[in-house]
Design a protein around this nucleic acid. Sequence first.
DNA 1: TCTGCATTGCTATTGCCAATAGCATTTCTT
DNA 2: AAGAAATGCTATTGGCAATAGCAATGCAGA
Lengths: 143, 143
Amino acid sequence: MLDPLSSLPGYVLSRAAAASLAELNKRLGKIGLRHSDVSLLILVKANPGLTQSDAGKLLDIQRANMVPLVSRLLDQSLISKEPVDGRSQGLLLTAKGKKLLRAAQAVIDDHEVRLQQSIPEHLRPHLLPILHALWDSSRTGSD
Amino acid sequence: MLDPLSSLPGYVLSRAAAASLAELNKRLGKIGLRHSDVSLLILVKANPGLTQSDAGKLLDIQRANMVPLVSRLLDQSLISKEPVDGRSQGLLLTAKGKKLLRAAQAVIDDHEVRLQQSIPEHLRPHLLPILHALWDSSRTGSD
DNA sequence: TCTGCATTGCTATTGCCAATAGCATTTCTT
DNA sequence: AAGAAATGCTATTGGCAATAGCAATGCAGA
């Protein structure tokens, strides 16, 4: 059975990402989170008080799609909102959020270590540069 | 604004894949196809008469989810079905499918070349090995 | 200062894709 | 022949991105 796809970097990139995300979500599911939740929690921890609009810009999630994400974390009391001005609200980790994030971080760290270790040692230093190059180029897609 | 995420290979992998796919789909949209259509067309071309069940195994798409995909291509007369036995049907490219696939291949080839070229030359040989390593490891996720 | 413009958060809707459960038919195995 | 597996399908669900539009607020230039 010929598989002409697995020699295409673009295809393998998608499959690798999908497989990696699926595995991560499975692990995160055990503590009641999704990868998108965790990325936001991490961002809020690093930038307490940032706006959900700003978070959306960093995560490349549109404002409209940030709403259910933030609501979910709000409903679980993992984050809180503090008014910044009449229209903006800063996001903060609650105590519960900080605690759960520590658990999530352990999952993430393990996941990232796995990814690193799955790669032959001599290629490891090239992992991040290559991924960033791919990311940048597709972001800058002309037309 | 701190971005602790972009130093995580797993995160960058997802973002790179999403950006790459979005760009590809945009280009493919111009000829009326989606990336999933094209992957199936490529597979059918390489393995004429393969079963949609087999295609699903290669593409990692469940039987239930193959149905709308195949139907779409069937509706556009890009592929045809030929009975293999009472339950299986082989998929074949129609003339129209072959023609459109040639256009799609041009888009794919361009896309893949872009990806390659976006990477510093000395890292290029490592692209596919790294992606395959990532893919394999996440497929084999223990638990 | 006021007027026009941009920003923020939101609703509502749509589309793509994956996952699950279940079904009828057909084939394979023993 | 009988039980197990495979094939294609329906129906439904969930996650996530994209678009359009809205009200309230803030901002900047005339």
